[in-house]
Design a protein around this nucleic acid. Structure first.
Lengths: 220, 220
DNA sequence: TTGACTCTCTAACGCTGTTAGACGCAGACT
DNA sequence: AGTCTGCGTCTAACAGCGTTAGAGAGTCAA
């Protein structure tokens, strides 16, 4: 059963299909056999275009991180806080475009090798603002880690997260019955509602950047 | 071949063995068959004491989170920042005791059901300091998420993380060759060295709490 | 026509989580 | 003493996983 209609698969097609599968069914739904089926091909065939599954996952994360950092505004050294914060917001937005990929991204080194150039660019801008290279990278790492942590937490209680993590509503009712007055009051006040994640993220960013600016003054 | 020597397994023994296995071999090393072997029992036997593997993992995370929050100091309402920060430090220390468990903890809802009581306790203390319940839980979530994010990043590049994430040293030399001057300077200045994670975490906490305090003043 | 190269296939290996059903042992009841 | 009940464990098996080996089409060049 030859495939005369297609000129042959490519690594990019495999990765694209893999991302499609992850977006649709989650990381657990990505299987070499399913990935093959998605491309009209047997599972073993994939190994001609890709060394193994781990490489596929790594590549997906790599691409996502690069895309996220590429979305960064150019960045003038003056007023680095507003610019760095814009980067954080862009990073969050980009990461949330593929929520199912987040658990993967979080358990790998924060900066994928392919993203080094992007990091260098951001770091250089911070250095131009007066930070030492080490300090600049600390800042980048802090912001990236914080964004990743919050994004991960947000995506954790969105649909399709395979395991039976109780959805927000069920958790809310359970809290309601559990006789914890403060928790109950917080839920009644809107905790856990859809826009609550956004609000909390912004609060965290406000605090983080307020603190960063305050601490940057004395010792640059 | 009866087991006259042991009065029968218990769920707790299974969980303890599971944690032992995860600490030793990572999450990927935890297999029902291996878990059985660790207890001198066949894999199928485990299903008499435990519903399935997912439940084991959930229970492990639950316990870790509870232990971490239990390590929190009692917390007097006055000077909540130092106290909340102590909690953050304790949380980090506790989470780092089982680094291999972190990827699991990070992809689950931040607060495990069993830990609700602990959360309530912390939240109540914050409310006594003048925060609204919702605000108090936002604060807790922010601190917990930030700590988890940073801890996860730290544990990400510690040994035994199964996949081939380049270790720090190899990454450093790769950076050195890659012609990115700022990155190179940062590595030369000590970025990535063992105590660098700790330094970055403390910097992040300093900034976060400075900002939280500053923002708490106006609107409590 | 022959040869090499590219791409895909079938078949299989050892591993995984999980279920069904049988077996032996303990204690309680008759 | 005999019988029954239930607990704890076993063996055997299922479908699915990632991965490899080797065969076999198809295309292009000499």
């Amino acid at each position: 059963m030859p495939r005369t209609d297609r000129p042959g698969l490519s690594r990019d097609q495999v990765l694209a299909a893999a991302l499609r599968l992850v977006d649709r069914d989650g990381v657990a739904g990505l299987t070499m056999r399913r990935l093959g089926a998605e491309l009209g091909v047997e599972a073993a065939t994939l190994y001609y275009h890709v060394p193994n599954k781990a490489d596929v996952l790594n590549a997906l994360v790599d691409r996502a991180v690069v895309a996220a950092l590429a979305a960064a505004p150019p960045g003038r050294p003056a007023d680095w806080p507003v610019w760095l914060r814009e980067l954080a917001v862009a990073l969050r937005a980009e990461l949330l475009r593929h929520p199912n990929l987040l658990p993967l991204a979080a358990t790998r080194p924060v900066v994928a090798p392919a993203g080094l150039a992007s990091v260098e660019r951001v770091a250089a801008a911070l250095c131009a603002a007066g930070f030492s290279p080490r300090r600049a990278l600390h800042l980048i790492n802090i912001v990236a880690t914080t964004v990743l942590g919050h994004t991960l937490a947000e995506a954790g209680h969105t649909p399709g997260h395979e395991d039976v993590s109780p959805d927000t509503e069920e958790l809310a009712t359970r809290i309601d019955r559990s006789g914890h007055p403060v928790l109950r009051a917080a839920v009644a006040a809107g905790l856990g509602r859809p826009d609550d994640d956004q609000a909390r993220f912004e609060l965290a960013m406000d605090a983080l950047f307020t603190g960063l600016v305050a601490r940057a003054r004395p010792d640059a």
